[in-house]
Design a protein around this nucleic acid. Sequence first.
RNA 1: GCCCCUGUGGCGGAAUUGGUAGACGCGCUGGAUUCAAAAUCCAGUUCUUUCGGGAGUGUCCGUUCGAGUCGGACCAGGGGCACCA
Length: 713
Amino acid sequence: MERKKSFVNWDPVDGTVLANEQVIDGKGWRSGAPVERRELSQWFFKITDEAEDLLAALDDGRLDGWPDNVKLMQKNWIGKSKGLKMSFPLVGGDVHGYAAIDIFTTRPDTLFGASFIGLSPDHPLVKSFAASDPKLQKFIDECQKIGTSEEAIEKADKKGYRLPIEVTHPLIEGETLSVWVANFILIQYGTGAIFACPAHDQRDLDFARKYDLPVRPVVLPKGADPKTWDVDEEAFVGDGTLFNSKFLDGLSVDDALSKIIEYMESKGLGESTTTWRLRDWGISRQRYWGCPIPIIHCPKCDIVPVPTNDLPVKLPDEADFSKPGNPLDRHPTWKHVKCPKCGEDATRETDTFDTFVDSSWYFARFAAPSDQAPTNPEEANYWLPVDQYIGGIEHAILHLLYARYFTRMMKACGHVNIEEPFRNLFTQGMVTHATFKDTQGQWLFPEDVIAKDDGFVHAKTGEPVTVGPIEKMSKSKKNVVSPEMIADSYGADAARWFMLSDSPPERDVEWTDSGVEGAWRLINRVWDMIEPQAELLREKADTQTFADTDQDLRRATHSAIKGVSDDIAHFRFNKAIARLYEFIGFLRKSAALSGNTAPTQPALAEAFSALIRLIAPFTPHLAEESWAHLGGDGLVCNAPWPSYDEGLLATETIILPIQINGKKRAELHIAPDASKDMIEQQALSNEAVKRHIAGKTIAKLIIVPGRIVNIVL
RNA sequence: GCCCCUGUGGCGGAAUUGGUAGACGCGCUGGAUUCAAAAUCCAGUUCUUUCGGGAGUGUCCGUUCGAGUCGGACCAGGGGCACCA
């Protein structure tokens, strides 16, 4: 943990820190005042110290049970990049104590295309200039209105302010470059300063065009003519051949990169450096709802940790929320304590922990929920890592990366002996719903909205309602449907059946009433079918003898068991349910048969017994009720999962499609093990095939047994 | 703006490794039942057609005997962008 400065969104009217979400179009959501970027001392976890291992584990097998897209997102987020740190000397010697400007670049191969130097508005040198340049200070103030999110900074119009200095190009004799303060350069990344090569970087190009700065191409796309090729409004960022670059001419981008880095290092002009996109994890929040950061600030002893015996630091029960800002900070008594070291008057840290801290280790706590200590290593080591972790894709980066980091730290402190908290990860989709707003622009709950004519109106006031996009359900946008209401109207079984049947679990589900109604119907249909079969499972036949007429039902039963089991094992719940619909339909017809085509009691008992156990994970209430009604032993949730007999699955004939020039023209009903010769013979004697190939010669005949026949004319 | 993902009938979605596009459900249409309706049951349902066929998986191009599936370019929607959690 360490304390350092970082930027926050500051609402100057409310005098409070705002979350990025609370900044709307650059203004505070409550006050409407333009938000400023302000520097604050904050607590940080040094997650960057673990960057190398957090990255390595993504590829070395430790996270084989994670989806590739999540691993790729984390890899890009950590953002390891090799580059060059180098200096551009100032023309005319020292200015404000700087002899040169240090920059970091990942594209040193484009050094000969350098056009200007760009500095972050938060760069110390810029601040020094601003002290005596009110116009520059005004420019910096403008930049600070952008907000702190990367999105806001990247999307803002490119703006610059020219500093009254120039630098020399270390590799081009007599070449000088102008120096600009540019609003798109981040102080957190690299050195907060760049050299710009507009021909091969889009942001640099946008900036150069706006301020009429030179654009010098140095990488030639494959096949382009060096005499005529030029950059217009689109930078060329692909691979190509270096030109206009002295000793790099003719090299590929990769070769030029190694050569220039080697050259700069050998001449003492630069240094090969690895930089990370990942920043340290800022955990300070100026809010009441959170765990207090257990630190005491003493005027004499400076920063003193709260002694272990006094942990945890509890929040005061009473707090004043009538004003914006942090209630802990203005609480009359809570923060005043004696320094644990010297005993003098001191104050508590009033920042609380980011709630991501809590979600980073709860799984270790779950292993021993009643323990006095935060964790019980013996229990944690027995239960962890989590075999199967399930969460929304929105957690792909922050939560999942923080938990991975925290687990490493817990290992270092002896709480657990694992690095990776989650062996298998499944990213489920979100439940989405349309959003609604009233005439004042306030969000509305779906239950307060009714359809009228072609639009929607407020259920109580009758005022028109505007329908917004379908988005993930969230409390702030009120597009939520309460589980209680669903369970009350349709029952928990129907709600669960619908949610699982609607889409694959990794995809979003849009909540619809008609969908739940369909599930409700199915449940009734199953019960109506089971009801007349009372005590069916009680009559155990002495010998399990099946009749020939049972064949089709038994095949359906056993293939349902196989299919549903396999689908559940692979999280394909929607497909499992589709199979169950098919099986239920078939069983309904079979059970209704009478006379000598009717299935025997053992075949029916086998089918119903399997069906109830297969639906039990989806509709447990219906399953238990049905199981009891049919006289099954004990509870269905304790009954063994049904097994299937592979031998009962085979069919006598399969349907083999015949294509002519890749288009389906006929079908062949044929034994599954038919030889190629037999298939060919039957295919060519098929009437539809004969019609299509009449008068033509067959150029090629492709037969994939069990799959397809393709006749190429 | 950057990173990741998705795109198939009126709708949600099926389609092991490239091999019958549209399983299953919703909706809709017709029929049965009913005095009538609801519920239920049965049948049909990608579009088009001169009934031979023809077109079709966001768009365009490519690889292949064969592409929803593989490659390239683009378009649209969603998730994330470090203080929503």
